[in-house]
Simulated assay, not measured.
Amino acid sequence: MGSNGYVQFDPAVIKQARQIDLLSYLQRYEPSNLKRVAGNVYCTRKHDSLKISNGKWYWWSRGFGGYSALDYLMKVRELGFVEAVQTLTGDMGDWKPPPPAVKKDEPKVLLLPQKNKDCNRVIQYLFGRGIDYQLIQECISDGTLYESADYHNAVFIGKDESGTPKYAALRSTLGSTFKQDASGSDKRYSFRLLAREPTDIVHLFEAAIDLLSYATYLKCEGKDYKSESLLSLSGVYQPKKEMKDSKIPIALTTFLSANSQIKTIVLHLDNDKVGRLCTATLKELLQKDYKIVDDPPPVGKDFNDFLLSYLEIARPMPKRESSDAR
């Protein structure tokens, strides 16, 4: 204990405490609280929405997570920092980090939320955001959209070339700002609407709702959205500070590899600082091989803002997140 009455830890002790992963801790000291879900994914019996996978954990019903047992003890068990470190270094003082695992290209296990008996809240939510009703129904019919049974989230599905779901984006329909990828999502296969006939143009969006907003706009203008290939990036694309270190989003590289006929990429990214930076970065990275067209929303931050303005619909204000409004 230091002269001021506070416990002082050797930096090496704190470093060790931060290295202990939650799965190792639970396997050793709370094995009865551990339940295997699938593959290398676990949950706790006390909190079945707290999922542990690939060295990370996320408590879905509370909307937060972490990387280590220390995070868990402080955030979930609500121990203070000193008590949490003492618990780990006392109970697991002989713990050593496991050797780095040899990375294998094992297929990810996509954990999809259970489907609700209907999609009424998803339909109401998207229709309230201006999305065309028939377009919503088509997505539900082809299995790329449904409503989760637990929190009534909208679940946007991305499928691989064989039609197998590989990616899922969850978004609250209850007015909160909650959005999250389902555990095991493979970002190579993001949500998309592909043209019925091969085309040499692909339209790029940050998120599924922006993509659906653009498709709705085309339909309102009397154009055939099914003649276009529309691809989302599974969220915001964050380029590196140094251009040379930036990479093309994997959803786009996967799509381009499978569609060698593409000649033109139309960027419909957001009208904010990040969106404009992403546009400039992608233009720089792709312009040698493709024609790049910058076509941001004419009005508002994103294409849903523009659609609501176009349809003269007021945008609903998001509520603060809470554990029962995911």
Rank of each mutant, 00 (worst) to 15 (best):
residue 15 K to G: 00
residue 16 Q to K: 15
residue 17 A to F: 00
residue 18 R to A: 07
residue 22 L to W: 04
residue 24 S to T: 00
residue 25 Y to H: 09
residue 29 Y to D: 07
residue 32 S to H: 15
residue 39 G to V: 02
residue 39 G to E: 01
residue 41 V to N: 15
residue 44 T to K: 06
residue 47 H to N: 11
residue 55 G to V: 01
residue 69 A to D: 11
residue 84 A to H: 09
residue 97 P to G: 01
residue 99 P to A: 10
residue 104 K to T: 07
residue 108 K to G: 04
residue 114 Q to H: 14
residue 115 K to N: 02
residue 116 N to L: 08
residue 117 K to G: 08
residue 118 D to S: 04
residue 121 R to S: 09
residue 124 Q to W: 15
residue 126 L to W: 09
residue 132 D to S: 05
residue 136 I to Q: 06
residue 157 I to G: 09
residue 158 G to V: 03
residue 160 D to A: 08
residue 163 G to N: 12
residue 164 T to K: 15
residue 165 P to H: 12
residue 170 L to R: 08
residue 174 L to F: 05
residue 180 Q to H: 01
residue 186 D to K: 06
residue 187 K to A: 01
residue 187 K to R: 03
residue 187 K to D: 00
residue 192 R to W: 03
residue 196 R to M: 09
residue 198 P to H: 12
residue 200 D to C: 09
residue 200 D to A: 12
residue 220 C to R: 15
residue 225 Y to A: 04
residue 226 K to H: 11
residue 229 S to G: 00
residue 235 G to H: 02
residue 236 V to P: 03
residue 239 P to F: 04
residue 251 A to H: 05
residue 253 T to A: 00
residue 257 S to M: 07
residue 259 N to F: 02
residue 264 T to N: 06
residue 278 C to W: 11
residue 286 L to W: 05
residue 290 Y to C: 01
residue 291 K to Q: 14
residue 298 P to S: 00
residue 308 L to W: 10
residue 310 Y to T: 07
residue 320 R to H: 15
residue 323 S to K: 14
residue 324 D to E: 13
residue 326 R to M: 03
